[in-house]
Simulated scan of single mutants.
Amino acid sequence: MGDIRILDIQGLDALIAELRRRGYRVMGPTVRGDAIVTGDLFTADDLPRGVGDSQEPGEYRLRKRDDDAYFGFAAPAQSTKPVFFPADEVIWHGRREHDHFSVEHGADAAAPVALVGVRSCDLRATEIQDRVLASRQYVDAHYAARRAGTFVVAVACADPAATCFCASMGTGPRPAATDPDTQQPAYDLLLTESLHDGEHHFIVEIGTDAGREVADAAGATPGTEHDHDEAVAITDAAAARQTRSIDTSTIHDVLRASAESPRWDDVASRCLACTNCTLVCPTCFCTTIEDSSDLAGDNAERHRVWDSCFSENFSYIHGGPLRADVKARYRQWITHKLSSWEDQFGMLGCVGCGRCIAWCPVGIDITEEAAALGRMASAGSSA
Rank of each mutant, 00 (worst) to 15 (best):
G2Y: 02
D3A: 03
D3G: 00
I4V: 15
R5W: 01
D8Y: 13
I9M: 08
I16E: 07
R20E: 10
R21S: 12
R22M: 11
G23N: 09
R25N: 02
V26E: 10
V26K: 12
V31G: 11
I36H: 01
V37T: 14
T38R: 07
D40Q: 12
T43C: 12
T43W: 11
T43G: 14
A44G: 12
D45R: 15
S54K: 11
P57I: 07
L62G: 00
D67H: 09
D67P: 08
F73M: 02
P76N: 03
P76D: 03
A77H: 03
T80A: 12
P82G: 01
G94Y: 02
H100F: 12
H105C: 12
H105Q: 14
A107Q: 15
A111Y: 05
A111G: 06
V113Y: 08
A114G: 06
L115G: 04
G117N: 03
C121Q: 04
D122A: 04
D122L: 13
L123T: 11
A125C: 05
Q129S: 07
V132M: 09
L133V: 08
R136V: 02
D140T: 04
D140Q: 03
R146Q: 01
G149Y: 08
A154Q: 01
A162P: 06
A162K: 14
C166D: 00
M169C: 09
G170Q: 04
P173T: 05
P173R: 05
P175Y: 05
A177V: 14
D179M: 13
T182Q: 06
T182Y: 04
A186T: 08
L189D: 06
S194F: 10
E199Q: 13
E205K: 08
G207N: 07
T208P: 09
R212A: 15
D216R: 14
A218D: 05
G219Q: 08
A220P: 00
H226N: 09
D229H: 11
E230Y: 12
R244H: 13
S245D: 07
D247P: 08
S249H: 04
I251Y: 05
A257D: 08
E260L: 04
P262Q: 11
W264A: 06
D266M: 14
D266A: 15
A268M: 02
S269T: 12
A273S: 15
N276C: 15
L279C: 00
C281T: 03
P282K: 05
T283Y: 01
F285I: 05
D291V: 00
D291F: 08
D291I: 01
S292T: 15
L295H: 11
A296E: 13
D298E: 15
A300I: 11
W306L: 10
D307E: 01
F310P: 00
E312I: 15
E312F: 14
N313I: 05
Y316W: 15
H318F: 05
H318Y: 01
R323N: 05
V326F: 01
I334F: 06
S339Q: 01
E342R: 14
F345M: 10
M347F: 13
L348S: 07
L348A: 06
L348E: 02
L348V: 11
G352A: 03
G354L: 00
W359S: 12
C360N: 10
C360I: 11
P361D: 09
D365Y: 05
D365R: 01
I366C: 01
L373S: 07
A377Q: 13
A377M: 09
A379K: 10
S381T: 09
S382K: 09
